[in-house]
């Protein structure tokens, strides 16, 4: 079996994320490199601060990290560009170097160091979370692996505590929305990530998961719970790969996001998809592809608006 390990430092695609809805002339000109340099030069002349300083001082957390990342990525200094690509061995020293390069003094900017460091950790954290997610996804479900089997049983026991599973190969798996008598072939390209996500939702939000499961079992308007869950894992994974989830994590997690934070997004999407599905009143399960696309579009719009992009279950 070939091991596909995604090495740390691997970058996901960085796509420009909108920080507001409207487009004005300045922001259009700003995308053209020569104008950007000119505008930055003027502002620097007038305010006496560099762009990094202004972002750190003025922007709210979340937006701050997105803007810093973009600013560093486009910088003409290779020191800044490499700093946003991969984490240096000595982060503190690298930040000191940046401050020296840009003429930022600790005494007059007491918060710069800590804020800048926190943003960088968010950026590095996202990239290493991507590797972690990718490795878990590439771990194919293997019914000969005892640990994998245990996780599968755990899912059953969490969702159907009152109904013991009669045998490992059983039509009962259909009750929680697997396709046939053996779930092992249903995880496909999502591997253990698909299963771990389902277990996380069932364990942390047991009541919500059971409520969603109940909706999914409606004879006419239902859908296969587990399969749709695996499809949603695919959606979260896609948002991770195309970098759209950056905005969410930068807003939500101070510092480095963990796998739990990733799985929280999955829970939110499962819960919201269920509501979306019911609201769409589909004729039958054949409408899934269309409704999934519509749902994905609305989530995408949310994630692109950096200031408000947060995908978390509201438990109040």
């Amino acid at each position: 079996m070939v091991e596909h390990n995604v090495q740390p430092g691997h970058k996901t695609k960085r796509i420009p994320i909108k920080t507001r809805n409207d487009i004005d002339l300045i922001s259009v000109l700003y995308t053209i490199s020569i104008f950007r340099s000119f505008i930055k030069w003027i502002v620097r002349l007038v305010s006496g601060t560099c762009e990094l300083q202004r972002i750190v001082a003025k922007c709210k957390p979340g937006v701050r990290t997105v803007k810093l990342e973009e600013c560093m990525y486009r910088s003409r200094h290779s020191l800044l560009r490499t700093l946003c690509e991969a984490e240096p061995d000595d982060l503190d020293a690298s930040i000191k170097n940046v401050m020296a390069l840009k003429g930022i003094v600790d005494d007059t900017n007491p918060r710069f160091f800590d804020t800048f460091k926190c943003c960088l950790e968010q950026i590095y954290g996202f990239d290493s979370l991507y590797c972690q997610v990718e490795n878990l996804r590439m771990e194919a479900y293997d019914s000969k692996n005892k640990n994998h089997e245990e996780v599968l049983y755990k899912l059953w026991n969490l969702l159907q505590p009152d109904q013991p599973l009669e045998s490992r190969i059983s039509h009962q798996w259909g009750d929680i929305g697997f396709q046939g008598v053996d779930p092992k072939t249903d995880f496909r390209g999502m591997g253990m990530l698909g299963l771990q996500n389902l277990v996380y939702f069932a364990e942390k939000y047991t009541d919500l998961a059971k409520q969603v499961l109940l909706h999914s079992q409606h004879p006419q308007h239902g859908y296969p719970y587990a399969i749709v869950g695996i499809n949603i894992t695919n959606m979260v994974h896609e948002f991770m790969c195309n970098g759209l989830l950056r905005s969410h994590f930068y807003n939500r997690v101070e510092g480095r996001p963990s796998l739990d934070d990733f799985q929280e997004v999955f829970c939110y999407l499962c819960y919201e998809f269920d509501k979306f599905w019911i609201k769409s009143e589909p004729e039958n399960v054949m409408a899934f592809g269309r409704i999934r696309e519509e749902f994905k579009k609305t989530v995408k719009v949310m994630l692109q608006l950096v200031e408000s992009a947060v995908l978390a279950i509201d438990q109040t």
Binding site: R137, Q179, G180, T185, D186, R188, G189, M190, G194, Y223, P224, I227, V228, I230, N231, T233, N234, H237, V285, M286, A287, F288, G289, R290, R292
Partner: peptide, 27 residues
């Protein structure tokens, strides 16, 4: 199910085939 229909579809369209999920409805 699990015959490989979606993988064949993606292969025909020269798309990535490593992140397939079971098809609900149709593609």
């Amino acid at each position: 199910d699990n015959a490989g229909k979606t993988t064949i579809l993606k292969s025909l369209a020269s798309e990535e085939v490593t992140n397939i999920t079971p098809t609900q409805g149709f593609n």
